[in-house]
Design a protein around this nucleic acid. Sequence first.
DNA 1: ACGTAGGATGCAAACGTTCGCAACGATGCC
DNA 2: GGCATCGTTGCGAACGTTTGCATCCTACGT
Lengths: 339, 339
Amino acid sequence: MVTVRDVARESGVSISTVSRALAEPERVAPETRDRVVAVANRLGYRPNRAASGLRAGRTGALGLVVPDLENPYFASVTKGVQARARQTGHAVFVVDAGEDPALETELVTGLRSQTDGLVLCSPRAAEADLDAARDAPVVLVNLRHDGIPSVSSDDAHGVVLAVEHLRALGHRRVAYVGGPDRSWSDARRRAGLEAARERYPDVETVTVGSFRPRVEGGRAAADLVVASGATAVLAYNDLVALGLVARLRERGVDVPRDLSVVGFDDTFVATLASPPLTTVRTDLARLGARAVDRLVAALGTRRGAAADADGSPDPMPSPDDVLPVELMVRDSTTLAPTR
Amino acid sequence: MVTVRDVARESGVSISTVSRALAEPERVAPETRDRVVAVANRLGYRPNRAASGLRAGRTGALGLVVPDLENPYFASVTKGVQARARQTGHAVFVVDAGEDPALETELVTGLRSQTDGLVLCSPRAAEADLDAARDAPVVLVNLRHDGIPSVSSDDAHGVVLAVEHLRALGHRRVAYVGGPDRSWSDARRRAGLEAARERYPDVETVTVGSFRPRVEGGRAAADLVVASGATAVLAYNDLVALGLVARLRERGVDVPRDLSVVGFDDTFVATLASPPLTTVRTDLARLGARAVDRLVAALGTRRGAAADADGSPDPMPSPDDVLPVELMVRDSTTLAPTR
DNA sequence: ACGTAGGATGCAAACGTTCGCAACGATGCC
DNA sequence: GGCATCGTTGCGAACGTTTGCATCCTACGT
């Protein structure tokens, strides 16, 4: 292993100068810097992260906790987080909490000691456990909680857009298939439903239970939706929507002729379904990138300047940051059946 | 921050004893150990990874490089890697190389300095670049290369199974839609095709180009497949299969009546397609877990004993480890059209 | 009863880096 | 021309842990 000493000896300077030449180039004479950098490259010097982290008190690592990596939603967010983190010179520990609140808190405490900061995506943990993480730099995604910075999409507005769309198609009775109980996103969607009902009193809404945010959840919900007499249904997310469609098809209920279906998130599965899903879109990679931006900003402006030519981060937003949504109208919604 | 000194002072022993009590419990007297552990818990002591890594020469972190996190295949493998790594006391840096060979090698070199070992999943990098990583502990997934340990699924056999299945259904002309040029998996599938052709000379096979391993790739391939006159098609993976189905449907070609389609990998999208895909299944989480087992084993038996009650790792396999495949027969394949 | 083996613990050095402080030389100003 | 200032560099300590070695004590064997 080639260390800073080797570079120092080889380029005839002290190790302090080497360290500075690489970390704070402006603090060292240009020709010295060039020489040092050249030698460092020639020898293939890679700074030892552990040593630097030990002395400087930062690890250069971020942590990302998601409920389920196999869920395309979180896969996209993870991708965004990871990409932006690389631009800011951080590596990302990714952990999958398996939708398990207990495991989640355990992972968070474990991760805190080996990272500079954490991104908690759609945490399922109890709010009390969240408080425990307060002293560490944390950014929440899809969950707002007290003074902890957060990034989320404007789910409530997404629901309003969806209801608006369905109403324009003549639907007057719309079902909503709810997601995990603990999920803040689900609460936001329900709030949106409430707002829509106020704005469009002629649209009845009916809510069916709380289901796992996966395909099975949608399958389980399908029969309840049919029984509810709704002519359109808004699903917690795209996977649930797909489960709905699959089960409905088995029962001989045609989508969209007999029942219009709206998904949520516009993950890649939305377009490959048949029919392609009408869904509420958010830029998930941007959601993740934004979370990293906020986290890095919170870590102090130390490495902040390192975000050079690459991606220009969005201008820093207010403590609670809400990304816009957009309704993608595809083939799973159509005119309400005339009776 | 509570350090080993605090624990030492509080429990009336030296810091060496604290370190040992936590790391090598058998080397310290039972009552001392219990006392130390109790104090450590009470104070909420968390060992500083950077310091421990610096001194001990290992970081407790593993790296995982995948071409695309949004691809459900890699999402599943990542999940498996992550879960097993946790059991062995490691955290996992996950990086998405975006199907870009150059970025991939760059990431690998960057990751090497901050991890104990790397899992390279379906590397797209040139083999020469792979050689550069040879001195570090590396396990390859879905790529075999010289003496580097690897884990893969028996893709070639999967292809044989698929062809066998199609032949039994009366198909005599089968198309294969190839994946990325650089992909070793693609080469294995082609080898399987060759083997199948030898075993079943009455089945003609025709190969169409090399496509991106995503839905768009399948869409692009669909028309070529139709023109080829094949009555059945084997896709590089499930996403490609779904793209095929979508495009075929648009053209009025019914699946499976007019054309049978077989996917690969049995990712979760296979079941939510309509029709549900017949596909070649591998246990992807196990693939990832296995890769971690091999990597940890290669790191020496240091922490090996820490894999206690939780998951019992598979018995350690030969240098090149091949996982079995299984054909999942669903609704996208049926009897060859009679003409 | 004495010597010794071995278990339990402590001491102190290292790991590779960063950073406060000081030294040095050169430049500019009065 | 001397003194102050500033830019550039080096010295050495510190970060928190692990670990080789020394030390102490207990208990055993002869």
